[in-house]
């Protein structure tokens, strides 16, 4: 099931990103979490017990918005500004130690 964004659509942005390979656009200055929320109403990660989560506090407090950005896991999407060409992946389950360096 595809769940539409829970927010009103905005005009297409100038920056192009991918989320699990699918294209999405964003505006300069958007947080990555805002861009993802605008794109989809689905979970952006699942917990160790497979429970679905999306960005929550939007201010760096809760760590619910963790995603993989250009191969780096556990990036706080709400504290990361979008950049053109970012390749973003949802994090399903917990990351394994050593999956990506540091």
């Amino acid at each position: 099931m595809t769940i539409a964004s829970r927010f009103q659509p905005r005009p297409e942005g100038a920056l192009r990103l991918t989320l699990d390979g699918a294209p999405l656009t964003a505006h300069p200055g958007d947080s990555l979490a805002a861009a993802i929320l605008c794109h989809s109403g689905e979970a952006s990660r699942t917990t160790g017990r497979d429970s679905p989560r999306t960005a929550f506090c939007m201010m760096g407090v809760c760590f619910e918005c963790l995603v993989e950005v250009d191969g780096l896991p556990n990036v706080q999407a709400c504290m990361t500004e979008v950049r053109d060409g970012m390749a973003v992946r949802r994090q399903m389950g917990l990351r394994k130690l050593g999956a990506a360096d540091v």
Partner: peptide, 11 residues
């Protein structure tokens, strides 16, 4: 915060 930073409006 989404309204202030991204002009994102809830549906």
């Amino acid at each position: 915060i989404l309204m202030k930073t991204a002009g994102l409006l809830a549906r």
